[in-house]
């Protein structure tokens, strides 16, 4: 079983480490692969889009046509998880920052996202969240986006103020924070159980 972490830019390695730990804990026989190669992604049973800069990652996945493969696999039911920049890319609609930068989105989740919703790096924060179906989690938000509107099919898993910061829609899972930076692997274990 292969889990691919889309490896163009961002904290790819941190996801690989967290997924390996989670697979061990769950006694799953998984190959966790950081990759940007179409043929490798094609063979995935789960896909992770990491944190990084959404403008950069979008440009690269759409430029290399990796976007088409992710969209097709997601539509076939392959679980896809996005964190931070990954959440932005999963969304159907972006805010004025997304539009201004012509950032193309995958449109796999029926949500509208706001980039840098909480402010700049100075305003980046850590907080304890209670995530539906996952539990208490020490979440790190770094220039984090947030979901500002979600349609009916979207299950809200956690909020901070008026913002949705964790959500699930069928096989698509999105987090505004970085579970891959925490020592806690609960989020990654939850994702692997979706396969």
């Amino acid at each position: 079983m292969r889990v691919s972490v889309i490896g163009f830019q961002g904290d790819v390695e941190e996801h690989v480490i967290a997924l390996n730990k989670s697979a061990n804990r769950l006694h799953l026989d998984c190959e966790i692969l950081a990759t940007r190669k179409a043929d490798e992604i094609e063979e995935s049973e789960a896909i992770v889009i990491p944190g990084g800069e959404s403008t950069t990652i979008s440009r690269l996945i759409f430029g290399d046509k990796i976007s088409d493969i992710i969209i097709r696999l997601a539509n076939e039911g392959v679980p896809v998880m996005g964190t931070c920049a990954g959440l932005i890319l999963l969304a159907r609609e972006g805010d004025e920052q997304v539009e201004k930068t012509d950032t193309q989105l995958l449109g796999l989740m029926d949500v509208r996202v706001k980039r840098n919703a909480f402010g700049r790096q100075r305003e980046s924060f850590q907080t304890r969240l209670n995530i539906k179906g996952i539990g208490e989690f020490d979440a790190v938000f770094i220039r984090a986006p947030a979901i500002t509107e979600a349609e009916n099919g979207v299950d809200v898993l956690a909020t901070v103020d008026e913002y949705v910061v964790a959500a699930k829609q069928d096989n698509i899972l999105a987090f505004a924070f970085h579970p891959e930076l925490a020592d806690d692997t609960k989020v990654h274990e939850y994702f692997l159980r979706m396969i």
């Binding site: 830019q9 944190g51 990084g52 950069t56 790096q121 980046s124 790190v140």
Partner: peptide
Amino acid sequence: RGFAKMQKGG
């Protein structure tokens, strides 16, 4: 350190 990690590969 997390902020810096988001810049990786960039």
